[in-house]
Design a protein around this nucleic acid. Structure first.
Lengths: 221, 221
DNA sequence: ATATTGAATATTGTATACAATGTGCAGTAT
DNA sequence: ATACTGCACATTGTATACAATATTCAATAT
C-alpha cells in the first residue's frame, strides 16, 4: 500500500501561527510603523515562550517588515518616500507580467471570485476593510499565473506598502477611480486579452502611486 | 557632547555569522541542492547551541534557499526549470533598471573596481571562483543606483540561481562570450549611456539564460 | 525473499534559565 | 533649573533541558 504523504511535515508550528498574526497586524496597520514589538509581550499574548516569537520576527525581518534593534526590540519598519517609489516601480514591472500569464490560463472560478472581491471592495462601507478586498481582488487575478517566484516578490512588495497605506487610510480618496480600473482589468481578463490586462494593471498601479504622492504633498502643507 | 551612535545595535550576533556562513556555503555550491542541513551539526561546527542556528535557517527559508521538513531537517531547495526561468525573467527586468540608475551617478572608484573584477573574472584559472568574480563585477556596477529594495531582490534572485549554477560549473562554456559582454557593459558605463548599459545588461542576462537552457538540454541526451 | 512490526534512535520544536548589556530614573552636583 | 552619575530594571541573545514524533533497523511473520 502506498502512503500519500502530501502534506508531510507541514503541520503549522506555533512559530508559523505567530508569523501570520504579526504580519497581519502590521499590514493591516494595527501595529503602526515605528512601534516596537516586545518579544515577551507577544509570547504572553499567545501563551508560548519567546523562542517561536523570535523566529517569527526573524522571518518578518528577512521580509523587511521589522527591524531588530538590540535591547530596544523589534521595530516596525518605516517606509521612506524613496523606498515607496522603488516598490511601486517594481510592482508596475512585475504585476503586468503576472496578470498577462494568468489570463492565458484563467479559470471561470478565478474570474468569478475576482468579481466578488471587486464588488466587496466597491460596496464595503468600513474603510478599514478596503485594503483587504483590494488585495484579494488582485491576488485572485494573479493566481493562475503559475509564477510562484513572481508572486512571492509581488506579495512581499504589497505587504511593505500596505502597512503604510492602510495606517493612513489613503485609499479614501480614489475609491471610485480604483473601482473603475478594477472593472477595466476584469473586462480585459474576460476578453482573454493579456496585453490589455497587463497595461491596465500597470496604469492602475502607477495611478495609485501618483495618488499617494499627491496625498503626501498635500499633507506637507 | 554628542554621541554618534551610527552602528547602534549592529553588533553581529552569532545568528548573523551563521546565516552568512550557511548562505555562503549554499550559493558557492559547497552544500548542494537536496542536501539536508542538521541543526545540531551546524551548532557543533560553530560551538553554539541550536537556537542561533535555527534563526539563521529561518532567514534562509524566508529567502527561499532552504526548506524546513519536520524531523527531516532543513533541506537546500531544489530549483525547477520553471523557477529558473522565472528568476532570469525577473533579473532581466530589474537589473537593467538598476544599472541605468547607477550609471547616472557612478563614481570613478566604482568603475575602477568593476574593471578589476572584470579582469579577475577573465584571468582566473580556478573555475570555482568565476561565479564569485562575476557576481562582484555586477554588484559593483549596481552599487551607485541608490535602489536598496531593487538590490535586495536582485541579490536574492542571484543567490537562488547561483547555488545551482556553481554546483554545476555551467559557466565553463561561455566564459569568453561573457567577458566580451562585460567589457561592453563597462564601455557603456564609461560613456555614461544608461540606456545602452541597460540593454547590454539585459542581453547579458538573457544570453546566460539561453546558455543554461542549452546546457541542460545537452545534459538530457 | 519479502513484508510487517516494534522498540531504540534521531531530530525537531519549545519551555525554562541565565548572561550580557543597554535604558531609564532617582539622586546629586553645579 | 540643568547636567551628570550610578544603580535597579528591562530586554534581548543564547544555552540547556525536555517533549513530541518521525525514522531506522533488527526481529519476526508470511
Amino acid at each position: 500500500m502506498k502512503i500519500f504523504a502530501t502534506d508531510l511535515g507541514k503541520t503549522a508550528s506555533s512559530s508559523d501561527v505567530i508569523f501570520d498574526a504579526l504580519r497581519g497586524s502590521i499590514i493591516s496597520g494595527q501595529v503602526q510603523a515605528g512601534e516596537s514589538i516586545r518579544q515577551e509581550y507577544i509570547a504572553n499574548l499567545f501563551n508560548v515562550s519567546r523562542i517561536p516569537v523570535r523566529e517569527a520576527l526573524k522571518r518578518l525581518e528577512a521580509q523587511g517588515l521589522v527591524q531588530s534593534l538590540r535591547y530596544k526590540g523589534y521595530v516596525v519598519s518605516l517606509l521612506s518616500h524613496a523606498e515607496t517609489e522603488e516598490i511601486y516601480e517594481i510592482r508596475a514591472h512585475l504585476e503586468p507580467i503576472v496578470i498577462e500569464r494568468s489570463v492565458a490560463s484563467m479559470s471561470e472560478e478565478t474570474l468569478e471570485e475576482a468579481r466578488e472581491y471587486c464588488d466587496l471592495f466597491n460596496t464595503e462601507t468600513d474603510a478599514t476593510k478596503w485594503g483587504e478586498w483590494n488585495r484579494r481582488f488582485h491576488e485572485t487575478l494573479y493566481r493562475d499565473a503559475q509564477r510562484p517566484y513572481h508572486l512571492k516578490l509581488v506579495g512581499e512588495a504589497i505587504d511593505r506598502v500596505d502597512s503604510y497605506l492602510r495606517a493612513q487610510l489613503i485609499l479614501t480618496n480614489g475609491m471610485e477611480k480604483a473601482h473603475q480600473e478594477h472593472l477595466g482589468i476584469i473586462d480585459a481578463c474576460i476578453k482573454g486579452d493579456g496585453d490589455l490586462a497587463a497595461s491596465r494593471t500597470r496604469d492602475h498601479i502607477l495611478g495609485s502611486y501618483k495618488m499617494l504622492i499627491e496625498y503626501l504633498n498635500n499633507q506637507k502643507k
